[in-house]
Amino acid sequence: MAFRYVRQKSARDLIKRSNGVLSLWLMGLLATLCLLCTLSVAIGTRDVAWGDVFAALSGQVDNIGQAAVAVRIPRTVLALVAGAALGLSGAIMQGVTRNPLADPGILGVNMGASLAVVIGVAWFNIDSANAFIWTAILGAGSAAVFVYTIGSLGRGGATPLKLALAGAATSVAFSSLVIAVVLPRNDIAGGIRSWQIGGVGGATFERIWHVLPFLAVGFLISMLSARKLNSLALGDELAAGLGERVATARAFSALGAILLCGATTAVCGPIGFLGLVVPHLCRLLVGVDHRWLLPFSALGGAGLLLAADIVGRIISRPAELDVGIVTALIGAPFFIWVVRRQRVREL
């Protein structure tokens, strides 16, 4: 009896120490995020004095420098919420499919949202912000269902390799359809082409307010699915044995990811690889417990997208490199590394 008490006490102490370390990592990540926000409003194609930065943050727009900072503030906010949404949706998709290669871009979800928006603009002349968002969410959801259905055919069900191949093929097919829809429409081709690169430039608080309710619902659903994802990680049979409704848990978790991905694509365009890179890096820090992994992935995604946007402003001065290009340059080598390291096995 005494031995059992000592063992239970040691286990509790270990959990407390582990939670203490994770809390320190969380505070460090928040501090890094604050630093990146400061750099984001201070760095751009125009050099701005720190006095003008602080003045613009307090609401003054008396000169060109302060006006430049005022434009960067909503851009920084959009990068934060979009990065958090993409990082979180990537972690959800990897948990739902138990696939280390799962990502809104690789699984074709981003391109499904893009195709839906392009069809809506070209054929139905949608122009309101809410119409864009609902159309993108519908396209993202349809693409997710289509890829999962294709990947589930044949022996073994939805294996990581089959899902990755189905997603890649779907993404290429949808990309070709986007070109086919846009090609005869010179009046919208320029805007669609620019939007399809993916970026946070030109952000306004009005655009952010339109998308914020959808992202808030997506964040709430995703965070509530943490325990369900922990159960799914044990395998379908064991999760069902523990009383989890596997199909319902998967659908509920996927709904959060689809809302986040679709709404973000509507306002920023398709930004790839962020949902692949961030969950893997966070998993190295916090392990596989989704109660910690999901909030870390959200904060990590916000930080990485913000850092990518800052880098894009610096490396091509006086022009800017869209954040979608920067994340692709980061994500493509990481994708190759994950394939070689994981050998496409299940999580």
Rank of each mutant, 00 (worst) to 15 (best):
G190V: 13
L284E: 07
I119T: 10
T265F: 07
F335W: 09
P279T: 00
E320I: 01
G157L: 07
V41N: 04
D47A: 14
W292D: 04
F219Y: 11
F132E: 06
A328F: 05
L24W: 15
G301N: 07
V147A: 03
R317N: 00
R313H: 14
A79T: 06
A143W: 05
L138R: 03
F273Y: 06
D52R: 09
L220D: 06
V181A: 14
G256W: 10
S152W: 09
H290Q: 08
W134V: 15
G272K: 06
E237K: 14
P104Y: 03
G190K: 14
I336Y: 04
A79W: 04
A144E: 00
V267P: 10
S171N: 08
N110E: 11
R313E: 15
G272M: 09
A308G: 04
T135K: 03
L33E: 03
A85N: 02
L306N: 05
S222H: 08
A173I: 11
A164D: 05
L138F: 13
H210C: 08
Y148W: 11
L33G: 03
A84E: 02
M1F: 12
D52V: 06
A254K: 00
Q8R: 13
Q8Y: 08
V172P: 01
W25M: 10
A189Y: 09
I258M: 12
T265Q: 15
R340V: 10
A189T: 12
V109H: 04
I258L: 13
G262F: 11
F124N: 07
S23R: 00
A91G: 04
V326Q: 03
T135H: 00
F334I: 01
V217Q: 05
F334R: 00
L107E: 01
L293E: 03
G269D: 07
F273T: 03
G120T: 14
I126T: 12
A42F: 10
N19K: 11
V48L: 02
D309I: 07
V246S: 05
Q8I: 08
G59K: 01
A116H: 08
F54H: 05
F334L: 02
R4Y: 05
S194F: 08
A79H: 06
I64N: 10
T265H: 15
G301V: 02
S152L: 14
F146E: 05
S297A: 02
V81T: 06
L215V: 04
L284W: 10
Y5E: 13
N19D: 13
V81Y: 00
L234G: 14
G167R: 08
V71P: 05
L238M: 12
D309R: 03
R155L: 13
S10Y: 15
S253H: 06
L259Q: 01
Q342Y: 12
L35G: 08
G59D: 01
R4M: 10
L220Y: 04
G331K: 00
G28K: 03
I188R: 09
T76Y: 02
G198R: 01
D13R: 13
V41Q: 01
G120D: 15
L107K: 02
Q94S: 07
V118G: 02
A116I: 07
K162N: 06
F3K: 04
